[in-house]
Computed example of a mutant assay.
Amino acid sequence: MSAKREQFLKMIGQGWSVAAAARELGVSRSSANNWKNGYRITRTDGTVVTFEALTPAPQPISTRFLSQQERLLIADELHAGTSLRRIATLLGRAPSTISREVRRNRGGLAAYRPFTAEHLARERRRRHHRLKVQADVQLGSWVTARLAEYWSPSQIARALPATFPGQRERHVAHETIYRAVYRHQLPPLARSSRSCLRTGRTYRKAHRHPSRRRARFGLPVRMITDRPAQVLERLEPGHWEGDLIAGPGHRSNIATLVERTTRFTVLIPVLGSRHAEVVHRGLVAALGTLPPDLRRSITWDQGIEMSRHREVSADLGCPVFFCEKGKPWQRGSNENTNGLLRQYFPKGTDLSVHTPEHLQAVAYQLNHRPRAVLGGKTPAELFDALLPFPHHPLLRP
């Protein structure tokens, strides 16, 4: 069974609807129905393969409720003529618990049947209640009107006590409003206004607990805190910072590399869906011709395009360090250069139209521009002085 089918089975067992579980897992509704109800496939050779319907395991319940095993023992002891108080002692329960169990879950039968009692108890535990904003027409209409004005659920919840003073039954939490929106339980809420939340979502997006989130890279990485101290002082050349600038929908990208000491810039086109492979090849092609003392380290953002960082490090003979999440200033030279490059590659434009020759011409122009941080010198001038031989390909227009 695939991982998604296993997760689907677990979600159905927890009470998720088929549509909600399919939407959460990113599968089609028809596939989810097939997983739940079973299906058959006729192969080209005429053989028929049957996939049985999934049977979700019952959701575990708290130990404060009677279990199936305890109900079996109750039935056996009642059949043997044991008193309710004695059964309670055997189970370590209160006598009232056993008395209420036998009275409520007999199901109109003459004898107490444990499996019938288990089914009745599980059905009774289900919560079949309506939210306040759905049951109260006036409250629901007021909340719907505010949602139509693009109020957030938190703003609506804070305004309810002043709008309905002294009516605590109409003071609801913002989570109640979110549930009503996601479950479409506000009757006046039209289809066009179901996505009135600022996120535009019509369903809840699940968030993993930080301790359960899957790491971006499968293998351990070197963080920027492991980087040598001399890199921060910019006294030693050969330490690079890199990132991607993206086009619409990340369908076209340009990898940017900046040398920390000279601010020398290298541009690499990244096209197609296999970003990691393209970035790997581009970095090796761009930096592989440099002497070892000009490729001492690379500092990169935690983008998936650098998932082959171990291959990059092995091929170039230099370590790859990663910035902390949400801290782009840790590679400030690269961020500043990306801002300068947006003059040539505006946001929202297709970056795939730029040829490698054009990218090299843009890098040439940027590298031959005097920089105040370099004392009026150009990045190309300083970088050229570090090379043991002239006319390096990176310096050509």
Score class of each variant (00 low, 15 high):
220 P>L: 04
225 T>P: 00
232 L>E: 14
241 E>Y: 08
204 R>L: 11
224 I>H: 05
240 W>E: 03
240 W>C: 13
220 P>M: 02
228 P>K: 13
213 R>E: 10
217 F>A: 03
204 R>I: 01
219 L>D: 07
209 H>M: 08
229 A>Y: 06
226 D>H: 15
233 E>N: 07
220 P>T: 03
241 E>D: 04
225 T>Y: 11
208 R>D: 06
240 W>L: 08
233 E>L: 11
235 L>S: 13
204 R>P: 01
218 G>A: 14
215 A>M: 13
211 S>T: 14
239 H>T: 09
236 E>Y: 00
226 D>F: 08
236 E>H: 03
218 G>H: 12
211 S>H: 12
240 W>S: 10
218 G>C: 02
209 H>C: 05
232 L>S: 14
243 D>A: 06
212 R>C: 04
236 E>S: 07
210 P>S: 13
221 V>D: 04
226 D>P: 02
220 P>Y: 10
219 L>F: 03
222 R>C: 12
223 M>D: 14
222 R>G: 01
217 F>P: 02
211 S>G: 01
235 L>N: 07
224 I>A: 07
238 G>D: 05
232 L>F: 14
241 E>L: 03
227 R>I: 06
217 F>R: 13
240 W>N: 09
223 M>V: 12
228 P>I: 11
214 R>G: 09
222 R>K: 14
220 P>G: 12
228 P>N: 12
227 R>Y: 07
210 P>V: 09
231 V>Y: 12
219 L>S: 14
240 W>Y: 03
224 I>Q: 07
237 P>Q: 04
240 W>F: 05
234 R>P: 03
226 D>E: 15
205 K>L: 11
227 R>A: 11
237 P>G: 08
215 A>L: 14
236 E>V: 15
216 R>A: 13
231 V>H: 07
228 P>Q: 12
240 W>A: 09
223 M>Y: 06
227 R>D: 02
218 G>E: 14
208 R>A: 09
224 I>E: 02
214 R>S: 13
212 R>M: 00
234 R>Y: 00
243 D>I: 12
241 E>T: 04
233 E>V: 10
213 R>I: 05
238 G>V: 12
219 L>T: 15
230 Q>N: 04
215 A>D: 08
219 L>G: 08
217 F>T: 09
221 V>Q: 12
229 A>N: 06
204 R>A: 14
220 P>H: 05
234 R>K: 05
227 R>L: 04
216 R>P: 00
243 D>C: 09
225 T>E: 15
210 P>Q: 10
220 P>D: 01
220 P>R: 07
230 Q>H: 13
215 A>V: 11
